[in-house]
Amino acid sequence: MSDATADGASDGTADAARQRTLPRGTDVRSALALAAGLLFWGWLVVRWLNDWLGGVLVGRGEPLLAAEPFESAAAVLDGLAASLGVLGWPIDVLAGLAGFAAFGVEFLPALARGAWLTVVLTAVSIVLGFLVAVPLSVARVYGTRSAWLSLAYAELIRGTPLLAQLFVLYYGLSLSAWIRELPAVGTGIVPGQAVWVAIVGFTINSAAYQAEYIRAALESVAAGQLTAARAIGLSKLDGIRYVVLPQGLRYAIPGWSNELVYLIKYSSLAAFITVPELFDRADTIAADNFEYTAMYALAALLYLGLVLSASKLLARLERRVAIPGLGQVAGRQGS
């Protein structure tokens, strides 16, 4: 295998055979992943549209499916399991699953609305954070005085709890009151001020972490690259922009995807400053019906869907922007 990878040209037939067999297995898997993704996101988008437009398919917050069939299935299976005694445990498990499905049908609509805010918080904060992180990391690697500023920022933000940062922004500073005065905030599709405060907080926080990932990637770009850029007369900044960053950001994708995955989950801290995102919805409903385990399990499923989608998306991005000889994508796929 390693021979074929290292010296594909000389061993054309084996290489071609591998090329033929490898994608077939991958095709099935990626088709399944695609189907699951389409189902998950299709459901989310249909729910969001339905609720925004005031209930097109079903009433706002009403389930798309009826819960009754799952409930009666659970009841039937439960009875069956009871009649079989000890031997009925596999049926009992099925009954439990049917019951969970019925529970899910009932409460997932509310969680889907929370998931919208989770997606918004994550997507906006990761993008804004990235825009802050790139200059921060460049300053850290290539700056002199700005390197110290960048370092101080990273250490201050990474060294203090995110929750404390959110509290300072929301309760400590008057940011919240100031945002509330802006036009359109909290009306229609525009989220309320707490969401904006959370976005500010996550952006500040995520920028520090993203800057670290990007810094490490920039440092792995060979020094000779910038030297060569300077030697043809590019300024240092242009050399960084046209030569170092295009390479460094490619190197940064795997580490950076880690930050996106984290951000999806720590966006749940926004619940503590009253943002009704995914975790907050689950928590509020559970406080009502005392089904904490089941509610958190449902929320966990949604987080899992979001996280898997994000990592899949970034893996695709990494392959899409891959350049021969830069990074390790090709090598990983072969072996």
Partner: peptide, 8 residues
Amino acid sequence: QGFNLFAH
């Protein structure tokens, strides 16, 4: 010596 071509 090391060429230093822009790798990307």
